[in-house]
Write a protein that binds this DNA or RNA. Structure first.
Length: 892
RNA sequence: GCGGGGUUAGCUCAGCUGGUUAGAGCGCUUGCCUUACAAGCAAGAGGUCACUGGUUCGAGUCCAGUACCCCGCACCA
């Protein structure tokens, strides 16, 4: 187990391009991300939310995948047999539309010109192209997926799972075919589920139209936002309790223009307060009207067709576009005196979430999943905490949706997707589902059977992803070893679309939930807070960011900007800051390597060396950092973990520790001290880099390989554990004295404009304990504060004259700067400081005078407050003394 | 209508289980190319934690209400 070391010269500025590709290739070569199906071994598993093969990845994917990669790399380092399973989604409508668009633009052809088979070939080659892109983008990001297990929702295995699940649900009666109102997108030429319709508040009109009573005794006035549907009206409804219209119930009106006589019915659905309190009923074009039609046995007259044009039933308007029809109809109604009035009215209009076309509610025969029985257990597992949302608040959204769920329309009139595995026998009429393509009717053995032409909603296959990718319905090793998964990481925008559906599908087909934790993150917005979208053109390409700043910088940006569940604004400046951090880490490593040239690690435990104060301090801080980072990761709080590391590395490790050990490393404190500093630096840096690895995989691997290390890759390095032996509160406290003294001297120097290069002497008055700390660390204080000499005297020594002074950590500091001292300014400064100290003292005293506080607060807290109070008193006293000297000197 | 989130420094945001002096990045001021890093170093300015009340010894943090902003879901003839 020889420790390896490579001490090639590192460039001054970190260049991500030079290292990223190299290491990813290496990781793949050595199979660093491969999970072995070994039942019994502690494992961690996760499936990726499969990106759509519609196009390239965007920032949202980068965020989602970075979070997952942090988890995967961290768990892997913790020794878990870790599987992060990658793949892509066929994205039915979205992909088909894209390919059709291209076909039209480039060849002027429609999919019908090509035919189903030829068209699908085109889609497959599109899929191949974008799948390749997606994979290479993920590699650029550093995603540590097990590529040997990559899946696609329409590959053989996933397709088999789709059939198995469909047949199971079909045979249990959970999938049925029905004639209902569905959302129809006239542009995409397919049905949509409730979720795929976006309701947009739209300014429209409410037209009041007169329907004359057949018996000539009066009229009914209805109000509608969609007058063209009146051509399909088969009733007018009023509320049964509505006194105004009670007498009309049972009478008939004659539809203007159409001439059809339709009844006035009574139905509870009608809201007497809305419009005129009379509703036209169009069972074929409105979901509520449809239900009323069922209740009252009304005729269904379809007047708008699949192409959004008026049908033959529309009489003289047949063939017109629905909006053109509306215009003409209104004109005609007006001309013939049926239009009572037109009010402006704002209402939500459904739009296709893919193409933004106004959706048409249409009557048609479709396949549905019966949701109530499936939702029940899916609600339970969340309520019982068997599936936990992180942050927890998202479970409310989930539950609300599940509890109010309606049946799921799963048939799509597309070509790209899983063909519905249902066959109809033309001879005996049998309708049956099958996992294997049947050659004959299962009932009458006729070969005259036909498969349903439609395909399934994409989300039907996505819902099976956590187990279809692991081989179900076959009993595979993977399934046994890695299912159910541990965590799912995804955005809040697909909780209903996907997370919810995976949960009920898994409960139904596997008998267990598909995962334990659902980690929800926000979406990425632009710098103005807008959603990134293609139509706004405000999207940012992760690859361009990686090219410019490096993958680690992009990852760190996404991670530090993240608070659980919250959205995140993208600013290039943030990536710049992360890039700077990467460079900081790089240079810390560079510095270390320059000073570790002759260093050889031995097996001795770091705590057993002749440690100096700074060593004990940084080891203690390091050990705290290990603890904190691990704690944050355990809570899926990626952002806090990243920030903890950022601060530790930049401030404590670089600004203080590295600076303080420079004299030692340069040999000015003797060889023994130098050796110890080397050991501590190597130790802390190596393990800090390991802690950072899940966040910034590339730069940490590069650095780690240069540092003395064991093993072939940092990917497999053990995750550092918080070592209690390194915790050292005393060292932290003492180091606090050193740092505060240094800061105070620097402050005086800056205020007095002492040239940075000029070393000046300092006199310090301190009690015995602090005096010892200062004396022991004198060489470092001299260097850090640029002192020519420091004279530590007992606290009661006479005060030096003609000196700028300050109090820090209970130490009175004097810089004799004869000639530089402006007494008046100095007095002013000290007065301000005294005022501030006394203000704090007052608050502190009030607090301690409060009996409730002293009696009820934890002893620790009270003790802390007392100590703080003593320190403040001490400080006030010292500042007062300084002031007294200055002012008395004045009067002399 | 139901539900959720937000309001903290000039900007963008953190702030966990209530506990010393509320943090970061960017921006700003001053001074530095100090042999790891100018993508840097040092020093500094900048905050009524939206408002009102409550719980508590103690509230940015918990509770209730108010205001404004954002987002889901449902309804909308």
């Amino acid at each position: 187990m020889g420790a390896k070391k490579q001490t090639t010269q590192l460039p001054k500025v970190y260049d991500p391009k030079a290292v990223e590709e190299k290491w990813y290739r290496y990781w793949k070569e050595i199979g660093a991300f491969r999970a072995e199906a070994e039942p019994g071994k502690k494992r961690f598993s996760m499936v990726i939310p499969p990106p759509n093969v519609t196009g390239n990845l965007h920032m949202g994917h980068a965020l989602d995948q970075t979070l997952q990669d942090v988890l995967a790399r961290w768990k892997r380092m913790q020794g878990y047999n870790t599987l992060w399973l990658p793949g892509t989604d066929h994205a039915g409508i979205a992909t088909q539309i894209k390919v059709e668009e291209r076909l039209r633009e480039e060849e002027g052809l429609s999919r019908h010109d090509l035919g189903r088979e030829a068209f699908l070939e085109r889609v497959w080659s599109w899929k191949e192209y974008y799948r390749d892109n997606i994979v290479s983008q993920m590699e650029r990001l550093g995603a540590s997926c097990d590529w040997s297990r990559e899946r696609f929702t329409m590959d053989e295995g996933c397709s088999k799972a789709v059939r198995a699940a469909f047949v199971q649900l079909f045979e249990k009666g959970l999938i049925y075919q029905g004639y209902y109102i569905v959302h129809w997108c006239p542009h995409c030429q397919t049905t949509l589920s409730d979720l795929e319709v976006e309701h947009v508040e739209t300014e429209g009109n409410l037209w009041h139209i007169r329907y004359p009573l057949v018996d000539g005794s009066g009229e009914a006035v209805v109000a509608t936002t969609r007058p063209e549907t009146m051509l399909g009206d088969t009733a007018v409804a009023v509320h049964p309790e509505d006194e105004r219209y009670r007498h009309l119930i049972g009478k008939y009106v004659r539809l203007p223009i159409v001439g059809r006589e339709i009844p006035i019915i009574a139905d509870e659905f009608v809201d007497p307060k809305f419009g005129t309190g009379m509703v036209k009923v169009t069972p074929a074009h409105d979901p509520n009207d449809f239900e009323m039609g069922q209740r009252h046995n009304l005729e269904q007259v379809t007047v708008i067709g699949l192409d959004a044009k008026m049908t033959e039933e529309a009489g003289r308007y047949a063939g017109l576009d629905r909006y053109e029809c509306r215009r003409r109809l209104i004109a005609d109604l007006d001309a013939e005196g049926w239009l009572v009035k037109t009010e402006s009215h704002s209402h939500a209009v459904g739009h296709c979430y893919r193409c933004n076309t106004v959706v048409e509610p249409l009557l048609s025969k479709q396949w549905f999943v019966r949701m109530k029985p499936l939702a029940e257990p899916a609600i339970q597992v969340v309520k019982e905490g068997k599936v936990r949302f992180v942050p927890e608040r998202f479970s409310k959204n989930y539950l609300h949706w599940m509890e109010n769920i309606r049946d799921w329309c799963i048939s799509r009139q597309l070509w790209w997707g899983h063909r519905i595995p249902v066959w109809t026998c033309h001879d005996c009429g049998e309708v049956f589902a099958a996992t294997e393509d049947p050659a004959e009717c299962r009932k009458c053995r006729s070969a005259n059977i036909e498969q349903d032409p439609d395909v399934l909603d994409t989300w039907f296959s996505s819902a099976l992803w956590p187990f279809s990718t692991m081989g179900w319905p076959d009993k595979t090793q993977d399934l046994e070893c890695f299912f159910p998964t541990d965590v799912l990481v995804t955005g809040w925008d697909i909780i209903y679309f996907w997370v919810a559906r995976m949960i009920f599908m898994s409960l139904e087909t596997q008998g267990v939930p598909p995962f334990e934790h659902v980690v929800i993150h926000g979406i990425i917005r632009d710098s103005l807070g807008r959603k990134m979208s293609k139509s706004l053109g405000n999207g940012v390409d992760p690859l361009e960011v990686i090219d410019e700043y490096g993958a680690d910088a992009l990852r760190m940006t996404l991670l530090t900007g993240t608070a659980p569940g919250n959205d995140l604004r993208y600013y290039p400046e943030k990536v710049e800051a992360s890039r700077n951090f990467a460079n900081k880490v790089w240079n810390a490593a560079r510095f270390a390597l320059m000073n570790l040239e002759d260093f050889e690690p031995d097996g001795k435990h770091i705590a057993d060396r002749e440690l100096e104060l700074a060593d004990r301090w940084i080891l203690s801080r390091y050990s705290w950092t290990v603890h904190e980072v691990t704690r944050h990761l355990n809570r899926f709080d990626f952002g806090e973990g990243a920030r903890t590391l950022y601060d530790f590395i930049w401030t404590e490790l670089c600004d203080w520790y590295v600076e303080i050990i420079k004299p030692r490393l340069y040999g000015r404190a003797g060889e023994a001290s130098r050796r110890v500093a080397q050991h501590v630096l190597a130790y802390v840096l190596t393990h800090t880099v390991e802690l950072l690895h899940p966040y910034m995989p590339f730069i940490t691997e590069e650095i780690w390989q240069h540092l003395p290390h064991q093993g072939e890759t940092i990917v497999k390095a053990p995750w550092p554990e918080a070592d209690g032996a390194l915790q050292d509160p005393e060292a932290e406290e003492q180091m606090q004295v050193v740092m505060e003294v240094v800061k105070a001297i620097r402050n005086i120097r800056a205020e007095k404009s002492v040239p940075p290069g000029k070393a000046v002497p300092a006199i310090m008055l301190a009690d015995a304990q602090r005096g010892d700390i200062l004396k022991e660390n004198a060489p470092y204080i001299l260097a850090l504060a640029r002192l020519s000499d420091m004279d530590v005297r007992p606290a009661d020594s006479p005060k030096p004259e003609q000196a700028a002074a300050a109090v820090a950590a209970g130490v009175a500091l004097y810089l004799p700067l004869a000639g530089l001292i402006d007494i008046a300014a100095e007095v002013e400064r000290l007065r301000r400081e005294l005022a501030e100290t006394e203000e704090q003292l007052k608050r502190s005293a009030a607090r301690l005078a409060n009996r409730g506080f002293v009696e009820k607060a934890p002893a620790e807290v009270v003790e802390g407050a007392r100590r703080r109070h003593r320190e403040l008193e001490e400080k006030a006293e010292k500042v007062k003394a300084l002031l007294a000297e200055l002012t008395s000197g004045d009067s002399e």
